[in-house]
C-alpha cells in the first residue's frame, strides 16, 4: 500500500538546510495498523506529511497504492488525497462554521457527490462513530473526543485506502483517548490501513506495528503484542 525507498527531506533554514529525513525505507502493506514513534524533531510528522501528499520529498521513491508519486502538482495531489487518503489531525481541524454533518460530508463534496447523497452517507458514518444525535451541532458545541470522532468519520467517509492520524489523541484525556483508539482499531479490523503518529507509548502499544524514528532514521521496526494476540 505504502512503499518508501531511501526517502530524504530537508527544509531550508536561512542559508543552511535542515536535513529532517535521512534515507527512510518503509513498507506498509494493506490492512496494517502502524504507529510511528519518536520524540519531537525526529521527523515523524514530516514523514506523515509526505505520505499524506501534504508535502513533497526531495529524494527517494514513494509509491502510494503502487503509483509512483512524482512531479505532483496541487491539483493532482488533491485528487489523490481525496481518493486514497483520510486525515485525522491532533487539533481536529474541523471547519468551525459547519455542522458535524456538513464537516463529514465535505470530502464527498470535493468528490462531486450530490448534496442529498453525501448528507446521507455522512450521517451513516456519524452513526458509526456514535454521534448521529450530534449531527447538527457546530464543532464548538462538541467535546474534544466528540470532535475527534467527527474528524475520524470525515476521514472515513470517502472509503480511503489509508487513514493517516497525526497525534490523534494528543489533545485528549485518557478516557477519550481509549475510545478514539478503539475506533481506530475497529476501522483496522474492517481492513483499512491505519497509520498513526504518536509519542505516547500507551497509544503505540495498541497498534500492531511500531516504527521508531530518531533524528531522521528508523531505529527499530517491530510487531507489538497486540498483533501477536490476533
Amino acid at each position: 500500500m505504502i512503499k518508501i525507498e531511501k526517502l530524504h527531506k530537508s527544509y531550508p533554514i536561512g542559508k543552511d538546510s535542515l536535513h529532517v529525513l535521512k534515507g527512510i525505507d518503509l513498507h506498509i502493506k494493506e490492512g496494517e495498523f502502524v504507529s510511528i514513534m519518536g520524540s519531537s524533531g525526529s521527523g515523524k510528522s514530516t514523514l506523515l506529511n509526505i505520505v499524506g501528499l501534504l508535502d513533497i520529498h526531495d529524494e527517494g521513491d514513494y509509491y502510494l497504492n503502487d503509483q509512483l508519486i512524482k512531479d505532483m502538482n496541487e491539483k493532482k495531489s488533491a485528487i489523490l488525497r481525496n481518493k486514497f487518503l483520510g486525515f485525522v489531525f491532533q487539533s481536529f481541524n474541523l471547519i468551525s462554521y459547519k455542522t458535524a454533518l456538513e464537516n463529514v460530508a465535505l470530502p464527498l463534496y470535493y468528490k462531486g457527490m450530490s448534496r442529498k447523497e453525501r448528507l446521507k452517507v455522512a450521517l451513516e458514518y456519524l452513526d458509526k462513530v456514535g454521534l448521529k444525535d450530534w449531527a447538527n451541532h457546530l464543532p464548538n458545541e462538541l467535546s474534544g473526543g466528540q470532535k475527534q470522532r467527527v474528524a475520524i468519520a470525515r476521514a472515513l467517509v470517502t472509503k480511503p485506502k489509508v487513514v493517516l492520524a497525526d497525534e490523534p489523541t494528543g489533545a485528549l484525556d485518557s478516557t477519550t483517548t481509549d475510545s478514539v483508539m478503539d475506533l481506530l482499531k475497529d476501522i483496522n479490523d474492517e481492513g483499512m490501513t491505519v497509520f498513526v503518529i504518536t509519542h505516547e507509548e500507551e497509544v503505540a502499544e495498541q497498534t500492531k506495528r511500531i516504527v521508531r524514528l530518531k533524528d531522521g532514521v528508523i531505529i527499530s521496526d517491530e510487531l507489538t503484542k497486540a498483533s501477536k494476540a490476533v
Binding site: 499524506g52 501534504l54 496541487e74 491539483k75 488533491a78 485528487i79 488525497r81 481525496n82 481518493k83 486525515f87 481541524n93 474541523l94 471547519i95 465535505l106 470530502p107 470535493y110 468528490k111 470525515r154 470517502t158
Partner: peptide, 16 residues
C-alpha cells in the same frame, strides 16, 4: 488560510 488547508487536505483543488 487554515480552512483552505483543511479543504485541500480533504481533496479541494486549488481552482475550487
Amino acid at each position: 488560510t487554515k480552512e483552505f488547508g483543511i479543504r485541500k487536505a480533504l481533496g479541494a483543488k486549488p481552482s475550487s
